[in-house]
C-alpha cells in the first residue's frame, strides 16, 4: 500500500514537473553565493561572534589558552554550584585539557537526569548568527546540549567562521572525511519561549544558561568591544 502511494505520488509529480536531465537541473540551480548574509557587527571575527552571542542572551568569557580555559570552567561551576562537577562527551580535545591544574575533572559521557552542567567542544562558532555548532556522537552526545541547566561551550578561535555558507564548507570537508554524523545542533542562546502572551522567557525546555568560552589568540579589546556593541 505504501509502495502504491509512492508510485502514485511520483506519477503526479512527474505530471507537474519539468522532468529535466539531472545535469540541467544542477546547472539551473542558483549559486549559493547569491544569498546575502546578515551584516557582521564588527570587522574582527572574534568581536563579531562575541557580540552576537551576547545579543542571543548568552554569557561569554575569553581565555588565552587551555590552562586558562579549565580555570575559567572550574570557576564558573564553583560560582554557580559550589562544586566542581560537570559532564562532557568523550571528546579528545576535552580529554587532553589540563584539568588537574584547576582541580576539576569532568565525568566523560552522556548527561544523566539531575546533572546540572554539561560542557561541549564546539565544531564551529558562527559570527553571523552568534551560534555554536555542535556535532552529535560519542564526543558530544546530543542530550548534553539539551538536558543540562547550564550548557558550557568551549570554542577554539581557529574554529570561528563568518557565515553559514562558510560553516557548511568546513562541515562538508569533515563529512567527506568521516561520513555523516547523526546530527548537527546550531545553538544560539539559552532555551526560550514566547508562547504565553508573546513575552520572552528563558529556560523553556533546554538549558537556562548558555555560556560560551572563546579560547585562543583574541584581540585584547574584543570582549570589551563586543559588550559595547551588544549594549551589555
Amino acid at each position: 500500500m505504501n509502495n502504491s502511494a509512492r508510485s502514485e505520488i511520483f506519477a503526479r509529480l512527474r505530471h507537474a514537473c519539468q522532468s529535466a536531465e539531472a545535469e540541467n537541473i544542477q546547472r539551473a540551480l542558483p549559486p549559493t553565493d547569491s544569498a546575502p548574509g546578515a551584516p557582521l557587527p564588527s570587522d574582527d571575527l572574534a568581536t563579531a561572534f562575541l557580540t552576537n552571542v551576547l545579543k542571543n542572551q548568552g554569557t561569554v568569557e575569553c581565555v588565552a589558552n587551555r590552562s586558562a580555559a579549565v580555570k575559567a570552567l572550574a570557576d564558573y561551576v564553583y560560582r554557580h554550584f559550589r562544586s566542581h562537577r560537570l559532564v562532557a562527551g568523550n571528546d579528545a580535545n576535552l580529554a587532553a585539557m589540563p584539568w588537574r591544574e584547576a582541580g576539576v575533572l569532568p565525568r566523560f559521557g552522556a548527561i544523566e537526569p539531575g546533572e546540572p552542567v554539561a560542557l561541549s567542544y564546539a565544531l564551529l562558532g558562527i559570527a553571523e548568527t552568534g551560534a555554536t555548532a555542535l556535532q552529535t556522537g560519542k564526543a558530544n552526545p546530543a542530550v548534553n546540549n539539551f538536558l543540562s541547566e547550564h550548557h558550557l561551550v568551549l570554542v577554539d578561535s581557529s574554529r570561528l567562521v563568518a557565515t553559514m555558507e562558510q560553516a557548511w564548507a568546513r562541515i562538508r570537508q569533515e563529512m567527506n572525511k568521516s561520513g555523516r554524523p547523526r546530527g548537527y545542533n546550531f545553538i544560539a542562546g539559552p532555551s526560550s519561549t514566547g508562547d504565553i502572551e508573546g513575552q520572552l522567557v528563558y529556560g523553556a525546555h533546554g538549558p537556562r544558561n548558555w555560556h560560551v568560552i572563546l579560547m585562543g589568540d583574541i584581540a585584547a579589546t574584543a570582549l570589551e568591544d563586543a559588550r559595547a556593541l551588544a549594549g551589555k
Binding site: 552526545p141 554524523p181 545542533n185 545553538i187
Partner: peptide, 24 residues
C-alpha cells in the same frame, strides 16, 4: 516569524544513532 535574527536551536538530523554513538 518572531523578529529574532536566529532561533535558539537549529538542528539537522540524518537518521538513527551511529555505531559508536551513546545516544539518539
Amino acid at each position: 516569524a518572531t523578529g529574532q535574527p536566529q532561533t535558539c536551536y537549529t538542528s539537522f538530523y540524518s537518521g538513527p544513532r551511529r555505531e559508536l554513538d551513546t545516544d539518539g
